[in-house]
Design a protein around this nucleic acid. Structure first.
Lengths: 227, 227
DNA sequence: ACAAAAGTGTTTCGGCTACACCCATGC
DNA sequence: GCATGGGTGTAGCCGAAACACTTTTGT
């Protein structure tokens, strides 16, 4: 093969992020009000172009920093969407990520500047182009992740009660978990550390706070909850 | 944002395929002898550029057809690799797929023309660039797939015995499965159809052939084997 | 007769589920 | 006292694993 092997038409490559958050017992999605054509004024995922000198992960981190002011956000690749007609504005290959944000610590002022807004997952609007499909895929992947990993730390405040964790899981899986069984299962993983004070807002008795143990990168090969 | 929103540097986008096959009780990998610089003469995955008018899936199908003469190959997206320095020949964003091929029906003559060769998975050579990592990720994804789907039809001949299916699973997972329990588990899925004749090459008694039932696209939500 | 795979049956074990039940406390 | 969530205990069910055992047939 000739030296011109690398002379080939190039493509516009973008990243789009499904940004999950959790607030008031609801799973939420951070969406952007599209300020340009095509589909101006409609809602879409947060996205941006991939630059020459960065990975797609770095591009996604850049987009997230711009929107939320946060670094070190948990990111996972979902899938590539590449239908030539998927974006009416031109041929764009888009790499999809999902992210998990702690709503309690991000910079809410930046959101307004960026025309962004949190939506409750179950009440989200129709999105532009193929973004609805992307959200669906990301949600499936989030469920898979949550069923094999304790994702509390990524969406909840530093310290949380078992009730809060369970309510998060119920929001993600859109079903109920038995309180006693959920508690036993989570504690059996030995990944949580019990703190010495209680949350008294959710019950009369008060529930102990827990936090995720440090240095606990150990991979769980065990299923936490069923799909 | 201006109309120049879509005026942005473009990227070279490639697909690379991890092509799994199965022959002589061994999991195999189809690799390509690289005929151009850089890394000329070394082994690599099968790849190709993504054209303007096709999806990344179509690009992968095109590459696979070129190499094997087969259409309708099972393909699954694995991940995007996009480190700017990953390919010394230039900045290439690569979308990785794995494929499953029935070695018994593909065109072996095409392989030689393309400098390709089947390697036993456990004896595969060092690959160029980040292709070793890609294979690792693809193998993990294949295991995940095989643990939730009956993948016999995709790698074995049309009809096969339970022993052959078990040996395939043992090759993929690199561990043993109890013959009795494996048989019961597989048959309990009710996805196989027993044929009326036997394979007599593997045993004196002979084992009935089975094939995957038609119209059996029903999704399995049940785990077939543990990781 | 024996070896070796095919195929079936049985026992055990552990985890998940579905509860029941007590505890603590604000109202 | 009672309602509410916190937290613990337990019986039963079901599937996975381990393995015994019978069948078949080529050598």
């Amino acid at each position: 093969m000739p030296a011109s092997f690398y002379n080939h038409p190039k493509q516009l490559v973008a990243v789009d992020c499904i940004i999950f958050g959790y607030e008031n017992e609801k799973l939420k999605l951070l969406l952007s009000h599209r300020g340009f054509q095509p589909a101006k004024g409609e809602w879409s995922l947060m996205g941006g172009w991939v630059h020459d000198d960065e990975t797609v992960e770095e591009a996604a981190e850049r987009v997230l920093f711009q929107i939320t002011g946060l670094k070190d956000i948990y990111l996972e690749q979902v899938q590539v969407f590449s239908n030539p007609g998927r974006d009416p504005g031109g041929r764009v290959i888009s790499v999809i990520f999902y992210a998990m944000i702690r709503i309690d610590i991000h910079d809410k002022n930046l959101l307004n500047q960026n025309g962004a807004r949190w939506w409750t997952f179950s009440e989200k609007p129709e999105l532009v182009f193929d973004h609805n499909q992307m959200v669906k895929k990301a949600h499936e992947k989030l469920k898979l992740k949550a069923s094999y990993t304790l994702i509390g730390e990524k969406l909840l405040p530093e310290k949380f009660t078992i009730l809060q964790l369970r309510t998060l899981y119920e929001a993600i899986f859109q079903r109920q978990f038995d309180p006693g069984n959920f508690r036993k299962k989570i504690l059996s993983l030995r990944m949580l550390e019990k703190l010495d004070h209680k949350n008294k807002t959710d019950s009369k008795k008060g529930a102990f706070y827990y936090r995720v143990k440090k240095h606990n990168e150990k991979f769980i090969n065990e299923r936490i909850v069923k799909q």
